[in-house]
């Protein structure tokens, strides 16, 4: 699948923002503290920035509001509706925290739950597609959710270190969730490498009874929308190297930073964690890029792929 930068930035940024808001919302970071107040502003910025990025993907962004109407059947619509609904309790909690330095428990907690449900619905846009077998599994949602929460915890740890508050709880929890997220992602990669989708070039053409099927001629000699959008394969040969980069930048460096932060003084801790966050964001951007670039779509069976 074509890795569109708009969607990669959208899922990365909004995932981090929702994760951070959820971490503050459930009270792991004191909403009235400096870290909590800056955290809400940062989370809202990341979410809004991510959503803006997503509209860049549209052919007609001015009609984006229409995407809020078909929540009965469409995960994309559900995600849009949930994103809008989440802004209400999240906005309230942020107002209480930022302007009045008060923790409004109910809206904050409600916002935390809605944040995670929104991330889940984002993941379901991909996980619900039968046509892309690598995406079509529960692990996809697990990846999106664990990445959002681990990133949120890491951001919260940075904010606490920078503002000089907080306890070791957040970095400790972050370490645990990072471990879980890595395990989930490795499982996802294993499944993606091992499993084939149900369709083959024989079932796609219905010519299986004649024997093995080979493509002789494409419809046209040049690329088309389908082969550009669904047949992206430029960087697959680099996927091993890129996966190692995801491990290094997305997990190893942030985990080292978290460990360092737990055992050192505030200045060193802050410095380490800032590095850890920047590295983590780069790692997730590469991970999301691979999520699309490596995904194979069933339609490419018509263009000569043997399995999908």
């Amino acid at each position: 699948m074509h890795p569109a930068l708009s969607i990669i930035f959208f899922t990365t940024l909004s995932g981090l923002g929702y994760g951070l808001a959820a971490v503050i919302g459930v009270g792991l970071v004191d909403g009235a503290s400096a870290a909590g107040r800056i955290g809400y502003v940062l989370a809202l910025g990341l979410i809004a920035g991510g959503l803006l990025c997503s509209t860049l993907h549209l052919g007609h962004p001015e009609r984006a509001w229409r995407a809020l109407t078909q929540w009965r059947t469409s995960w994309l619509s559900r995600e849009g509706v949930l994103a809008v609904i989440t802004f209400v309790p999240l906005g309230l909690a942020a107002i209480g925290s930022v302007f009045l330095a008060e923790v409004w428990v109910l809206p904050a907690f409600l916002a935390a739950v809605l944040c995670l449900v929104t991330v889940y619905s984002t993941s379901m846009i991909y996980a619900s597609l039968k046509t892309v077998h690598q995406w079509h599994c529960g692990l996809t949602s697990a990846v999106f959710l664990t990445f959002a929460v681990s990133g949120g915890l890491l951001l919260a740890a940075v904010l606490e270190a920078l503002t000089g508050g907080g306890s070791p709880t957040v970095p400790m929890l972050a370490l645990i969730v990072f471990g879980v997220a890595l395990v989930v992602k490795v499982m996802w990669w294993r499944r993606a490498g091992a499993e084939k989708g149900p369709s083959t070039i024989e079932s796609a053409t219905g010519l299986g009874p004649l024997g093995l099927v080979r493509l002789l001629d494409r419809p046209h000699t040049s690329e088309n929308y389908l082969t550009r959008e669904m047949g992206f394969r430029i960087a697959r040969k680099h996927s091993e190297v890129l996966r190692r980069l995801v491990f290094l930048a997305g997990f190893a460096v942030p985990v080292l930073a978290l460990v360092l932060a737990l055992i050192s003084a505030q200045t060193v801790a802050a410095l380490a964690l800032v590095t850890g966050v920047l590295s983590h964001v780069v790692g997730i951007l590469i991970e999301r890029w691979l999520f699309f670039a490596e995904a194979r779509h069933a339609v490419m069976l018509y263009y000569g792929d043997k399995t999908a």
């Binding site: 994309l76 597609l129 929308y225």
Partner: peptide, 23 residues
């Protein structure tokens, strides 16, 4: 149509194509 392209992703047959001029 907002031109999000999700329907083309959902179709296994490649029956839908985004018109790049009209979006």
């Amino acid at each position: 149509c907002i031109g999000c392209g999700l329907c083309a992703w959902a179709c296994p047959y490649g029956a839908r194509e985004m018109d790049l001029a009209e979006g």
